[in-house]
């Protein structure tokens, strides 16, 4: 043995390193999601460097985008003005529905639904780093435990559901996006009618969500908006996306759906963390 080690010292070192890495991987697998204090310190240090770089890049990138898309921005501005005018008229009509809304709120309270509006507060943060592997959909934000961000806190942005906090530390939090394959969301179809079809969605690893309806008779069509159902960690009423495909599985007799997420995960900068009670 000693002779072999003497003659093949280099190979022995390489094998030992591979074994150590494998042991580290298995140990990490058994304690998934728990960084050591050294790990947390390292992430905090890296985050403090990434934040200014990310902000500067975002500023430069936005500046260039604005310069290059000046005409389309002007056109979009005009469209938004038109939409605003229409919405003002719509608002006047909506005021007549106030009484109806109050009735719905009472019903919601009776059913014990926890909606986003009932959640205590939000903390806004910037995305400062993204997963480098192109495999996982994990990113880091610049708010953490110092602002009360905890594991499993729900993360949203202006478009809809982003994901949940996977791990948090001082000044940082790792967010696992809703399109990650390890994330599941209970949803319902939102059509503004009395119909309430429930289902389960999971990231399909290709930037979209796949799932099925709990009721095989549910009438779902392409284009239906999907919102969180309130079951599980996600509060009720957050937009998840739109159904892009409905397929009836002949084996399980379930209606399977593919959903395009409302959030553009390739271009995400600002997020809000819901600080639920």
């Amino acid at each position: 043995m000693r002779r072999w080690l003497r003659e093949n010292g280099g190979t022995a070192v390489l094998i030992t390193v591979a074994l150590i890495l494998t042991i580290l991987l298995v140990a990490s697998f058994l304690h998934m999601g728990n960084s050591s204090s050294a790990g947390r310190f390292l992430i905090s240090a890296i985050t403090s460097v990434q934040e200014p770089i990310s902000n500067a890049t975002a500023g430069i990138s936005d500046g260039f985008k604005n310069l290059l898309t000046f005409r389309s921005i002007a056109r979009e501005n005009q469209q938004l003005k038109d939409e605003l005018a229409q919405l003002k008229q719509e608002m006047v009509r909506q005021q007549f529905s106030d009484q109806e809304l109050e009735e719905l709120r009472r019903l919601s309270a009776a059913l014990n639904y926890e909606s986003v509006q009932n959640s205590t507060s939000y903390v806004t943060g910037d995305v400062i780093a993204m997963d480098t592997s192109n495999w996982f959909n994990i990113f880091t934000i610049n708010v953490g435990t110092e602002k009360g961000v905890r594991i499993d806190a729900v993360v949203i942005n202006g478009d809809g559901l982003v994901g949940r906090v996977y791990e948090a530390g001082e000044g940082w939090a790792k967010v696992i996006s809703v399109i990650d394959e390890t994330n599941s969301v209970s949803f319902r179809i939102f059509r503004g009618s009395n119909e309430s079809y429930l289902g389960i969605l999971t990231g399909n690893g290709r930037g979209r969500l796949e799932g099925y309806m709990l009721d095989s008779e549910a009438s779902v069509i392409e284009g239906d908006t999907v919102v969180t159902s309130g079951i599980g960690i996600y509060p009720f009423g957050i937009t998840v996306g739109r159904i892009s495909e409905v397929v009836v599985n002949t084996d399980s007799l379930l209606k399977e759906v593919i959903v395009d997420p409302a959030v553009d995960f390739k271009n995400i900068q600002k997020v809000m963390v819901i600080m639920a009670e």
Partner: peptide, 24 residues
Amino acid sequence: IASGIVQDMCFGHMIGIAALCYYA
């Protein structure tokens, strides 16, 4: 190995995947 461990710490579900792959 060093950069793989840092990458795994920051973004991976488990520590060691990227390090092991980089090493290999």
